[in-house]
Structure formats: C-alpha cells, structure tokens
C-alpha cells in the first residue's frame, strides 16, 4: 500500500471511532485489579510507614490503638536503632548491596562478551552443543540454584571443599573452609567483604553470565562481515578488529542489558537469603533480604514499610543515574 493510498483510505489515525471510550473498556479490567492489589497497597505502605504498626494491630476484633510515630521509623532505620535485629547497619547494607551489584554486573559482562566471542570464532567445532550447554544456568529457577550452591559450599560435606581436596591431592574431608560462616576478612582491613561474599559471587557468576552471552551473541551476529574484511585489508590485527569494530557494535546492545542486570542483581533475594542467610553477622544482607526479615521475622510492619519507601528512593536514584549514563554513553558512541 503506497503512502498516497494510505492517506486516502485512512484520513485520520482513528480507525474504529472514538479511541478514548474503547481505551477505557480495554484498560478497566487490569486497572481495576491493580488499583486494589498493586496501587492501593503502595499508598497504604506510605501511611503505614508513619505508624508503629505491629502484630498487636492485626487483631480485627480488638485492635490495639495505632501509634503514630511520624518519621520515627525512618530515623530508627537510618540511625541503626531497630531493636531485635543483631548486626543491623543501614549504610553497611547499602554499601555492600551496591558493591555486590557492581562487581557482579562487571564480571557478568566481561565473561558474557568473552564467551560469546569464543562461540563466535570461525570454524569452531561443536558450536551448537556448547551453546545448548552454556544456556543451562538460565533455565534453572534461582531458588533451586541457591539451594544447590548452599550445599556445595558446606563446610564439612560441600562439593567445593571436596574439589579443592582432590585438586590438592589430599583425602576428602581434609579441607574445611567455612565458606558461608567464616567471620574473617579475606582482604585484610576491608571488612565489607567476608568470605561468604566470594561464595555468593561464584554462584551468581555461574548464574549470570550465560544470559549476557546470549545478548552479546545476538549483537555479534548483527555486525556486518565486510567491516572485519576492511580492517584486514588495512593490515589490522585481532585487537584492532575488536577495538574498532566489535566493541562499538556491542556497546549499544549490552548497555541497556547491563543496567537491567544491575537492577536484577541489586534485588537478588534468593542467593543471600538461602545460601548465607545474610551471614556471617549480617554482612551479606541485602536491602531486599533485610526488608523481608523485618516483616517475616521481626513483624515490624511499620518499620518494614518505611524501609521499603527508603528502598524505593534508592532504586529511583539508581534508575535516574543509570539512565543519565546510558544517554551520555549513547551520544558518545553515535
């Protein structure tokens, strides 16, 4: 259909009459449901965050009078004054959470791109076999991954310690590294990272790079072959090809995905909650796991609501910063 014909047959964008009335009908089912179970709870959460809502307020027949504490919950959270949580330190949790997300995403990106390049090598035998194997971590639910790695890093019967014993030619059971509970600092004078951080990192690197490799493979396949030939004609080697052809093409595809991966890793619940249980001494606690503990174990509903509101603002700030970064780099690439 030519542009001319289109203009004659469809003079306006409205094909089927009034959009607004139809839109209302199409939106009402979803938004009626979300108004009740998505948006109203969020408003209620803000209201709750100004109260000392606790289990005593849950009884419907004889509810205890509600204590208004206004900003009290927020002050408690930021000044580490929550009773009942040992080793709680808000700024340590935020710093650890940021470090956790950054370190993971950088490793995922580098490994994902490197392995995608490896799979993209000309004449590689068994390419489709490797592709099928490498995508396996993606298809396993994260709660299962967390459970399996929890056992693999077990101190006395874990597969990792057995493996180290085999590599070191020692009898099984002779290596007793307390991966998940050791309170020492593997990096001297840097108490932010206990040994369990590295165990979590190993599990999440296993879990995280394959999806990056899939995205990078897609981007690699979109690079025109003649660009590489042009570099070859000009006498450029492998590094020149990577630096001036591959990288500029990968960047726009990988950057949005890296940001998405950052948010996912920042909020990754299962590994911290199941593998280390936040330990040792709460040092691998993330914002999401701490929020869950406040509700599930301490039943401090008001404090938990305030904690979630703070979390929302942290995520909002991160989203704005990452959006700026994307735009800044996008204009640099183009």
């Amino acid at each position: 259909m030519s542009a001319q014909a289109k203009a004659t047959y469809v003079p306006k964008r409205r094909l089927f009459g009034a959009d607004a009335r139809v839109a209302f009908l199409y939106l009402i089912p979803a938004f009626a449901v979300m108004a009740i179970i998505t948006f109203y709870p969020l408003v209620f959460q803000v209201w709750m965050s100004f109260t000392a809502f606790g289990p005593q307020n849950l009884n419907l027949k004889h509810p205890a009078p509600l204590d208004w504490v206004w900003l009290g919950n927020y002050i408690k959270i930021l000044t580490n004054d929550i009773s009942g949580i040992p080793n709680y330190d808000f700024f340590r949790i935020v710093s650890f959470n940021l470090f956790w997300a950054f370190s993971n995403v950088i490793i995922h990106l580098i490994l994902g791109v490197a392995i995608a390049l490896l799979l993209n090598q000309k004449g590689l035998l068994g390419r489709s076999f490797y592709r099928a194997v490498f995508v396996l971590p993606v298809v396993i639910p994260p709660i299962i991954v967390a459970t399996v790695w929890h056992n693999m890093f077990d101190q006395s019967n874990g597969a990792i310690n057995y493996l180290i014993a085999i590599i070191g030619r020692q009898p099984p059971g002779s290596v007793n590294i307390a991966w998940l509970t050791d309170p020492g600092n593997p990096i001297p004078f840097f108490p932010l990272l206990p040994l369990s951080y590295f165990a979590l990192l190993a599990a999440n690197v296993w879990l995280g790079w394959p999806l990056n490799a899939v995205v990078a493979t897609g981007a690699l396949q979109s690079i025109p072959k003649d660009l590489y030939e042009a570099v070859e004609m000009d006498g450029g080697g492998a590094w020149t090809k990577f630096r001036y052809v591959t990288l500029p093409f990968l960047r726009p595809a990988m950057l949005p995905y890296a940001i998405y991966g950052f948010v996912i890793t920042f909020n990754l619940f299962y590994l911290s909650f199941i593998m280390t249980n936040g330990g040792p001494f709460g040092r691998t606690e993330l914002l999401v796991t701490q929020a869950y503990r406040l509700v599930n174990q301490q039943q401090l509903y008001g404090v938990a609501a305030a904690f979630s509101v703070i979390m929302f603002f942290i995520l909002l700030t991160l989203t704005i910063i990452t959006n700026r970064l994307t735009k800044a780099t996008a204009s640099y690439v183009d």
């Binding site: 939106l27 938004f31 979300m34 179970i37 998505t38 948006f39 109203y40 709870p41 969020l42 209620f44 959460q45 709750m48 809502f53 307020n57 849950l58 948010v263 909020n267 619940f269 999401v288 796991t289 929020a291 869950y292 406040l294 509700v295 599930n296 509903y301 938990a304 609501a305 979630s308 979390m311 929302f312 995520l315 909002l316 989203t319």
Partner: peptide, 23 residues
Amino acid sequence: LMIAVLAVLMLPAVATIAPLFVL
C-alpha cells in the same frame, strides 16, 4: 498510566509484602 505501571515494575516484589500482608 504507563509510568505508573513502570514504576511498580521497578520495585522488587519484597518491597510490597508488608502492606499486602496487613491488607
């Protein structure tokens, strides 16, 4: 409305557990 949907997506599910539990 689209931004409202996106804003909710940005929040992890754990962040709404307290009000959902109470409601």
